[in-house]
Design a protein around this nucleic acid. Structure first.
Lengths: 228, 228
DNA sequence: ACCTGAACACCGTTCAAGT
DNA sequence: ACCTGAACACCGTTCAAGT
């Protein structure tokens, strides 16, 4: 380990670039969350000073945006490939949705970030691809916007919740254990005030987040097709 | 103005309390956004030192949570009153949804905050009330969780977007002007890459956010009733 | 019990100075 | 053109000291 590191050619020789900075930022965000992305930590990882980063990037907001953009773009190109390979609109929507879902699962910080991207370019790309499938579903043109927005907003809502859960969950507990904890806490809520929540506490315990998410997508697709 | 302030009994005499702190925090958040809530600014407004606040509140996270909780609770009690006054389930869902929508419109910062509430108590209250209406819609019990979640996540997604838009929008521009700007920018997107988005750019210009939001709620309710 | 405010350990960002 | 790192103006939070 020490030997291989010693033999490796000098890392610091590679010139700084926007690409390398964004890449390092993503690494930092994945490892230690939004709080872990610091200009000082980033500079340390890139073997330079904090000021150097500002020559390539205007500030932290842009950096966060670029990192989100990079991750979402990667996820989208994979998902749209499946989507265009002769699938039904419903299948294509599911594949797009699952692409975003998995991206947020792998990088929880984008769940929070997607809701505040200023240029919104990654969001717009998702919206575009969802919209094409809405068209393919054959709904009247006047309902296109509503239908595509409903899908996107649902996906963003789940993404935000998943991101929050990932933050709340202790890193050493599995998703199943976490769901179990929530489920029992729901079951112990006040019987009058939370009658409904208590009644679905059991369902929560055995749910697969991903399946549950897709069931919601199907529900909205059903609502969309009802517009025909 | 100056006279009335001079005559007013000494403000600083009122003892500090969790309530007063949360109230002042909401004021700060409303006036200058998430960045405006600072322990120093809060202390100045309460005519005390930053340390005093920590005796009543464990830290900034709890403070943000308590502020969100207070605002959402207020919005919910108003909305549930309408909801229970002999309305159809669909009307009740709309009234609940609009309650959250308007609360986020009035306090954009809760749009971001709702997606990360750790205790999630305000979210759970919304979920409970939506769930009751789902029950009233007469869907099979196995679909209760999915249906209520779909509604909640859609509402949260829109809330997050509205919060982001409120931040992005210059304070001196109206919502209509903002939509107009976005609409023309969509119309100028690449014709191939953003064919769908371009095709709905016109619809965006004349849309009322609230109506559009409710159309999405109706769409999901339609999807839910299709489960019967 | 409750408040004060200086002090600590951080931030993002800037900028003179270097190469 | 690109990098360096000290310095500035902030943060949240703590804590000895006061009442």
């Amino acid at each position: 380990m020490a030997a291989s590191r010693a033999r490796r050619p000098e890392r610091r020789e590679e010139p700084l670039s926007r690409e390398r900075i964004v890449e390092a930022a993503i690494g930092l965000l994945d490892e230690s969350g939004e709080g872990g992305l610091t200009f000082r930590a980033l500079a340390r990882r890139l073997a330079t000073g904090p000021g150097a980063i500002y020559w390539h990037v205007t500030g932290k907001d842009e950096l966060l945006g670029a990192a989100t953009d990079a991750v979402v773009t990667g996820a989208m190109t994979a998902a749209t490939a499946t989507a265009t390979a002769g699938a039904t609109p419903r299948e294509a929507v599911r594949s797009l949705a699952v692409g975003v879902f998995d991206a947020i699962d792998a990088h929880p910080w984008i769940g929070t970030q997607l809701a505040r991207a200023p240029a919104q370019s990654p969001l717009l790309r998702i919206f575009e691809h969802l919209g094409r499938q809405v068209q393919a579903l054959g709904v009247p043109q006047a309902a296109h916007f509503t239908a595509a927005s409903a899908l996107l907003n649902y996906i963003l809502g789940v993404g935000g919740q998943n991101a929050a859960n990932a933050l709340e969950r202790r890193p050493d507990t599995t998703r199943a254990e976490f769901l179990d904890t929530v489920s029992t806490s729901w079951a112990n809520l006040d019987a009058d005030e939370y009658a409904f929540t208590r009644s679905v506490a059991d369902q929560l315990r055995d749910h697969d987040d991903r399946e549950e998410f897709l069931a919601g997508v199907d529900l909205i697709v059903a609502g969309i097709t009802a517009l025909r």
